[in-house]
Design a protein around this nucleic acid. Structure first.
Lengths: 196, 196, 196, 196
DNA sequence: CATGAATGAGACTTCATTCAT
DNA sequence: TATGAATGAAGTCTCATTCAT
């Protein structure tokens, strides 16, 4: 089910399956776009019918592209992680690894904080596969190793800590109404991760 | 939806409303007990019918005591916070405030970590009112102020940070399968909260 | 799932489960009646929603009584076999066992022939359990043994032959439009079963 | 829905319509072959998409050749009857008409018994037109008349009885799991048809 | 008061058939 | 002409909550 590409922004159409027909690709995009907005609005209560409606497409079409509600969510998650992968590359390009790491955390947290609905929708979606697939895991690991070598990140920190942190962040974002509380959460966590 | 009592450990039966008849009170307890175990087992999928069945009571009776699924959940949360209040009192009794604070965090985290089902069930339950109502907020604030005075807790820490932390913890507990990962989460957070 | 009663017309309400409340029993009857007529009209295409509508009952009520479309069908089949059980007892009361057997076959065939829709609906419903449960199997076996002893039924005939015959009959009834062709089918089969 | 050819073994391609282009004919064959195997595997649950997939052809192509699922089924039935026509000719070539008739019945029954899936798929398919169209009806009638003249087949037997019998057989084959029960059915039926 | 039967909107998904490419 | 993407009505079943007994 996973396509196993490791490029930064994997092009699912060119993987193993034959490329999508132009109209199908167009629909796929419309559906994803609609899904993004529907999930943003309704969170985990979002319904496939709404997605279809907003994409101006029959339900069947949605199901053809994403055989299951979960598959649709997965595609959305994949997109999000692809975005973050780009950020990770920028972080890796910097000399100061800790600054890179810190900013990466802030920027990806912000990405999530921007839509609570999405955080809500994916709360129960297993993301472990995606993080590895899209290559984010590898990049973050590299970044963390360098930050540790530079003595800025605590020596025992691992990528699992980041998963942990992001997991908790999701909860904070979708649960607490005040729009900026997540910043405090991230600040505390980063302090906890910094070398002492 | 909130019942608005302001006593430290409110006993909803003796508040303003007439005291419940003995059998009604017995039923209330049975329902709560059943609910605890059903939610523990099924998490957010638990159904009121299951609770009723396990309490050997009709659904109607459940609804008489708790007009809504959410109200039932709220009562459960209230119980949990009452437990923690006791722990908070023990913490306040200690000389070293930071140790008291730290242990309180660990012990209440453990309480939650012990049942993922419950964490799952209350994931979307707004707990702000309860924390205040039951007096936990006040106790924790006191504890934190003392820990700050002793120079062990970072000066800018507030009770909101604790809410934040517990909120994230819930997500970690119910999302991540490995049974002890939550400990790492708590450790990081406490490190983030310690005075530097 | 089977209640294992062996009385002629089993009273499912008094079996192992507690007796149904008066209104529930009334609804159960209404649903069965509605189901009979809906299946008669629409055959296997009949929908639970139609049954509910015709019974003037919510879908949920139908599902409460019969957790599955198949369970509803099963109840209908059970009723039908109970009817036939009565006929079987009449057949057993006669002196001439072959005449009893023959008439039983004719009368139960007629029962089925009267509603094609029903035959259609139960075409894929496994009836083996029901025939045994309701005691029909036993009665027919007795009848056949006596008819064999009297030298009228071929010696190698078993109750399986009857199942076979009724199975084929269903197909004839629901497939062939001319309303009386089934009679020829039964006649041929009986000739095939008579001792030579 | 019927194509109304009246030749003995109609070749729908060469009839009145323009002959199909070579590739179109090839496709038609592939589709039929695929359909045979798909229906054999899945019975009445078979989907046109599966047929197309197995034929390595688009659904549209299937629909071009067979405007309806039913039309496809009809073609399959037609093929089956064509096979039986050949058997009927062999039967007619024998001196003993009853033996010819009996063997014809056994052999065609076996043909059906070999694939339950097919029996299942055509359970609701009206075959009356096809039997006449393909000339099977005529042959069987001839055979039966000769068998009657030879005093082996009961005088009142008609081709309708055979339809009846085959109709019931289908039900037995697809309903009863034990793989050889159909033989008993055929035996009984033949006994019912033999002159006494 | 307790009971548990009833309600019914709504969720997800399937598949024969059409039609744009 | 072939392709396969799109359609969308329809079907089964769930469950929080209400209400007659």
């Amino acid at each position: 089910m996973r396509r196993g590409t490791a490029t930064v922004v994997p092009d699912p159409e060119t993987a193993l399956a034959r490329p999508l027909r132009a109209d199908a690709r167009r629909n796929r995009e419309r559906i994803l776009k609609a899904a993004r907005s529907v999930f943003a609005d309704q969170g985990s209560d979002a319904q496939i019918d709404d997605v279809a409606r907003r994409a101006k497409v029959g339900v069947g079409t949605v199901y053809r592209h994403f055989p299951t509600k979960d598959a649709l969510l997965d595609a959305l998650v994949r997109e999000r992680f692809d975005e973050i992968c780009v950020l990770a590359d920028e972080a890796l390009a910097r000399d100061d690894a800790w600054e890179g790491f810190r900013d990466l955390v802030w920027r990806s947290a912000e990405l999530n904080a921007r839509d609570r609905g999405f955080c809500d929708a994916i709360a129960y979606h297993d993301q472990t596969a995606v993080v590895v697939d899209c290559g984010l895991m590898g990049r973050v690991e590299q970044l963390m190793r360098r930050a540790q070598a530079q003595g800025a990140l605590r020596a025992d920190a691992t990528t699992d800590d980041i998963s942990l942190m992001m997991c908790g962040l999701g909860s904070v974002v979708r649960t607490i109404p005040s729009p900026d509380v997540w910043r405090r959460y991230v600040a505390l966590m980063l302090d906890g991760l910094r070398a002492t």
